[in-house]
Design a protein around this nucleic acid. Structure first.
Lengths: 117, 117
DNA sequence: CTCCTATGTGAATATATGTTCATGTATAGT
DNA sequence: ACTATACATGAACATATATTCACATAGGAG
């Protein structure tokens, strides 16, 4: 665990300062959980389609070329993480994006990817 | 695969338009790969510490309270995905962030998390 | 050259994750 | 009540991922 490298560019006090500045102990866990939601192509496709229109489960399945069950499972994850919200009308459940931060993230990420050679 | 829901809010032509607007076929795969890098607490910690200072592997291991080998494995992933760059000095390898998009992503994500109840 | 230190890497293991299959639930129509 | 449709869910399976362990490599000191 504690390797004894003496090569520190920064002093022990600075290290303590960095450690002290950690917003909260579980911040990284929560952030990781947040980003993990975006870390799957299927979920990204669903989010992309929802960024264009409110859609029901079957339509999402058609668009994303996924099975209905797979879509439903992924939508549950998106729901639990508050990325999407639902509106029920009879037997049909319409999904839409929960807020606009998602678009922001898409933008920053696409910009980053665009830089690659 | 193709479920026969007739509940479409949007017409078939609109669906085609949405499908046609997909930037590239593999865009979601690349985006997912990108976000997946952020989807791990250990990597986020490493990135956070590197956002504060250029650091060597042993220091990162101390700060993140991880084994040296685990750190090295994760740094390899960060390297291959161009999140960090290295500078070698003797036997010591100093790591630092590749660009500033990472900070932007942290900000947007933290803002999103902050909204949760 | 030899030893020591800093880091990288492959194999193994445990755990997490995504999809499919089968089935359950809810609601509309008859 | 019965059937059909839209969606949700649990179990099973396959794959992916993170960590550990053991060892390899590289460079500096003697």
């Amino acid at each position: 665990m504690i390797d004894k490298c003496l090569c520190k560019l920064i002093s022990a006090e600075e290290i303590d300062k960095i450690l002290g500045q950690l917003p909260q102990p579980d911040t990284m866990e929560r952030l990781a959980k947040f980003f993990k939601v975006f870390g799957d192509p299927s979920r990204l496709k669903l989010l992309y389609f929802l960024s264009r229109s409110e859609l029901c489960v079957a339509d999402l399945a058609s668009l994303a070329k996924m099975g209905q069950s797979a879509v439903s499972h992924q939508l549950k994850i998106l729901r639990l993480n508050r990325f999407v919200k639902t509106r029920k009308e009879g037997t049909v459940v319409y999904y839409s994006l929960e807020d606009m931060h998602i678009q922001s993230l898409f933008d920053v990420a696409i910009e980053h990817i665009g830089e690659e050679a």
